[in-house]
């Protein structure tokens, strides 16, 4: 009965493999192995098929059966043991010690403390002893096995974390280092600047470049407060132009942006007679923005 099942397993696996499907060979193999396992686990042929005729037990001939000890009625008497008690022989003690000292008979190497050890070898010996005791004998039953379980648990959690792509590097200390470069604009928050006072101060000092910059930041703050742009430190002016695309503010904001860029990034010098036009364009934009919001 086993041979047909083996053949059936092979047939299933072959057919499914030839079909070229990705999971079919595995399915065929599993099915066939299941059949094999059932065949192994099943009881013998006699119990499996009760209708099959059982063989008759082999019985010895009558002549042989009548001559057994069980059929005799007379008891058997054995002669008494007349020999002297067996003397226990012991090998000479010296010979025994010689044999014990031979390397061929040292079945278990004793882990003895090194004689005349250095600090390094003593440290290694003690460490190996500690591990040996931890992982064998009674210590293993008491403590060592829990250590092994913990190691397996940690390995499982590590694999799980890798599969789930969890990143604990920040938790355990490795952080992306930041380049220590002084950058004063990073600490400037457009919501915290008093633009009126700062602008007045810059204009009175004839620092028109700074005034244009502060004026542009003021425009950005107003646009942010009216939710027309989403102000973020890493965004460029072009990002804000894109956010305003399609609105009525886009063309004028583009003009202000260009003014700011030429003055701030381009560092174009501004004559005192030129600044009022720049201030006028900014104020006109802010005025329209404020009136619409009102």
């Amino acid at each position: 009965m086993l041979l047909p099942r083996v053949l059936l397993t092979f047939l299933l696996f072959s057919i499914s493999f030839l079909r070229g499907m990705q999971f079919r060979p595995a399915l065929g193999l599993v099915l066939g192995l299941a059949l094999l396992a059932q065949a192994q686990a099943a009881p013998g042929p006699a119990a499996q098929s009760p209708l099959r005729p059982t063989k008759a037990p082999i019985v010895p001939p009558e002549a042989l059966r009548s001559d057994t000890l069980a059929n005799r009625n007379t008891p058997i008497s054995l002669p008494a043991d007349q020999q002297a008690p067996v003397a226990l022989r012991r090998p000479p003690e010296k010979r025994l010690q010689d044999l014990r000292g031979q390397r061929e008979f040292q079945y278990v190497k004793p882990n003895e403390e090194p004689k005349d050890p250095s600090m390094w070898s003593l440290l290694w010996w003690r460490l190996s002893e500690w591990f040996r005791k931890l992982l064998s004998g009674a210590d293993y039953e008491n403590r060592g096995r829990y250590v092994v379980y913990a190691l397996f648990g940690v390995a499982f959690l590590y694999v799980l974390a890798r599969l789930l792509r969890l990143d604990f590097t920040n938790v355990f200390g490795r952080r992306a280092r930041t380049v220590p470069l002084p950058y004063e604009s990073a600490i400037e928050d457009i919501h915290a600047v008093d633009f009126t006072a700062s602008l007045t101060e810059a204009e009175s000092a004839a620092n028109y470049r700074l005034a244009v910059r502060l004026g542009y930041l003021q425009v950005l703050r107003h646009l942010t407060e009216r939710h027309l742009i989403d102000w973020q430190p890493e965004k460029t002016n072009h990002h804000y132009l894109q956010e305003l695309a399609g609105t009525r503010w886009a063309p004028d904001f583009a003009t202000l942006t260009r003014q700011f860029e030429y003055v701030w990034y381009g560092e174009l010098p501004i004559a005192p007679g030129d600044y009022p036009a720049l201030r006028e364009s900014r104020q006109q934009f802010l005025h329209q923005l404020t009136r619409v919001a009102a």
Binding site: G246, T247, R248, D252, L278, S281, F285, Q288, R291
Partner: peptide, 24 residues
């Protein structure tokens, strides 16, 4: 399209009075 609705006068003002040319 998403500008406030009460801005018709302002829109015409903006179109008729563009921002001054920059002296750059």
């Amino acid at each position: 399209a998403d500008a406030p609705t009460d801005t018709s006068s302002l829109a015409s003002a903006s179109a008729s009075q563009p921002l001054p040319l920059e002296p750059l």
